[in-house]
Design a binder for these strands. Structure first.
Length: 208
DNA sequence: CCACGGATTGGCT
DNA sequence: GCCAATCCGTGGA
């Protein structure tokens, strides 16, 4: 893991829409090692994606899109390259990347990431201005709702274009094929046996 | 119309 | 390990 001081970012390596417009399982694996970037009030937030889950509109009963388009899930039916943010358990937001073609209903849940830049802002977003630096960096973005909160990805960001705004992904780190692990998805009750969770082996920032 | 439960988290026993 | 928090989309009556 590179130290924070020597990381250099090439924001011109922003991924374009065609990156997202492929099969959801392919894009999910390719998203590992990419950096999620958000410009927030002139500052840069960045985190390396270390864990994701794929959801597929057709054939996956756990997908919000499985029963067809509704007001809530309509963004999932766009073509790849949009952000789908949903509200869950009355408290939390979770952020997804829409993939594939229009009306596929496929998306990738961002489950965990490794903070790279803007850690103090992430802390503030997660814990409020008063809690400062006491909280450990490990707990900032190691879960889907934690990541969404650290990046302040709430309902206002549902439907934003990942190739033409202040939120996008860039090339960051190539992940060895042997370091990409697969498992069943977490926390669902339907289609629970599909092996559509992907994560970087032994990474310290995986969800708990 | 109403009841149910969810792609989670954090605090308490 | 267990469970409350707290909203709202969805599905059955």
């Amino acid at each position: 893991m590179p130290s924070l001081e020597v990381i250099s970012f090439d924001l011109s390596k922003q991924l374009s829409l065609n990156f997202y417009q492929n099969d959801v399982l392919e894009v999910a694996k390719q998203l590992l090692g990419k950096a999620l970037i958000k410009r927030e009030k002139g500052q840069i937030l960045a985190a390396k994606i270390v864990e994701v889950e794929a959801y597929r509109g057709k054939s996956d009963q756990a997908a919000h899109s499985y029963r067809g388009k509704t007001k809530r899930n309509e963004v999932m039916f766009k073509s790849g390259g949009f952000l789908y943010v949903y509200f869950i358990y009355g408290i939390h937001y979770c952020a997804n990347v829409v993939t594939g073609k229009e009306n596929d209903g496929d998306a990738i849940l961002l489950r965990a990431a490794e903070p790279l830049l803007g850690v103090d802002i992430m802390r503030r977003n997660r814990y409020g201005a008063t809690e400062g630096t006491a909280k450990q960096i490990d707990n900032l973005t190691n879960g889907p709702a934690k990541l969404a909160k650290a990046f302040k990805l709430n309902g206002e960001y549902n439907g934003v274009n990942l190739a033409s705004g202040d939120i996008f992904f860039i090339e960051f780190e190539e992940i060895e094929k042997n370091d990409i692990c697969t498992s069943k998805r977490i926390g669902i009750s339907k289609s629970k046996d599909l092996p559509w969770r992907f994560f970087i082996k032994n990474n310290r920032f995986l969800s708990k």
